[in-house]
Simulated scan of single mutants.
Amino acid sequence: MLVLTRRANESIVIGDDITVTILAVTPGGVRIGIDAPRDTRINRAEIVVAVSDANQEALQTAADSSAESLLLAALAGRGTTP
């Protein structure tokens, strides 16, 4: 990981088309501005993690539900009820 020190109104350039500017530094956090092409996706890390976790949970729920349905169908085919 590259670590840089920047002050308010200073920038860093990433590649040819992304500029990150420090807008303000306060005790509560740092405000940054990102100038990038419209087709560049920019997300906060915690949002990416939350979406990934939700997708994994949904996938697991679907897999559990599907397995349960298959088991019930197999039992029903044998004339057995759970």
Rank of each mutant, 00 (worst) to 15 (best):
M1G: 14
M1E: 10
L2M: 13
L2H: 11
V3N: 13
L4Q: 07
L4N: 03
T5D: 07
T5S: 12
T5H: 10
R6A: 00
R6L: 07
R6E: 01
R7E: 04
A8E: 15
A8D: 09
N9F: 03
N9T: 11
E10D: 07
E10C: 01
E10N: 03
V13A: 09
V13K: 15
I14H: 05
G15S: 03
D16V: 02
D16Y: 09
D16K: 10
D17T: 04
D17Q: 05
D17G: 03
D17E: 08
I18D: 00
I18F: 02
T19W: 01
T19S: 06
T19R: 07
V20T: 02
V20K: 00
T21D: 02
T21C: 01
I22Y: 00
I22N: 00
I22S: 00
I22A: 00
I22P: 01
L23T: 05
A24R: 14
A24K: 13
V25F: 01
V25N: 05
T26Y: 04
T26H: 06
T26R: 06
T26N: 05
T26A: 06
P27V: 03
P27M: 02
P27C: 02
G28I: 02
G28N: 07
G29M: 04
G29H: 04
G29D: 05
V30Y: 01
R31N: 03
I32S: 00
I32N: 00
G33I: 02
I34Y: 03
D35R: 04
D35C: 05
D35L: 08
A36S: 06
A36Q: 01
A36Y: 00
P37V: 02
P37Q: 07
P37R: 06
R38M: 08
R38K: 14
R38Y: 08
D39F: 02
D39N: 13
T40H: 06
R41I: 12
R41S: 09
R41Q: 12
R41P: 06
I42Y: 12
I42H: 10
N43H: 13
N43R: 14
R44M: 13
E46N: 10
V49L: 11
A50G: 06
A50R: 13
A50H: 08
V51L: 11
V51N: 09
V51C: 06
V51E: 15
S52G: 07
S52M: 09
D53N: 13
A54N: 10
A54F: 05
A54M: 08
A54T: 12
A54Q: 12
N55D: 14
Q56D: 11
E57G: 08
E57Q: 15
E57D: 12
L59R: 12
L59F: 12
L59I: 14
L59H: 09
Q60G: 05
T61M: 09
T61W: 14
A63V: 15
D64L: 15
S65M: 10
S66L: 15
S66K: 09
A67N: 14
A67G: 06
A67H: 12
S69G: 08
L70P: 00
L71M: 13
L71F: 15
L72W: 09
A73C: 06
A73G: 05
A73H: 08
A73Y: 05
A74I: 03
A74F: 09
A74G: 08
A74K: 09
L75A: 10
A76G: 15
G77D: 14
G77T: 07
R78I: 10
T80S: 10
T81A: 11
T81Q: 10
T81C: 05
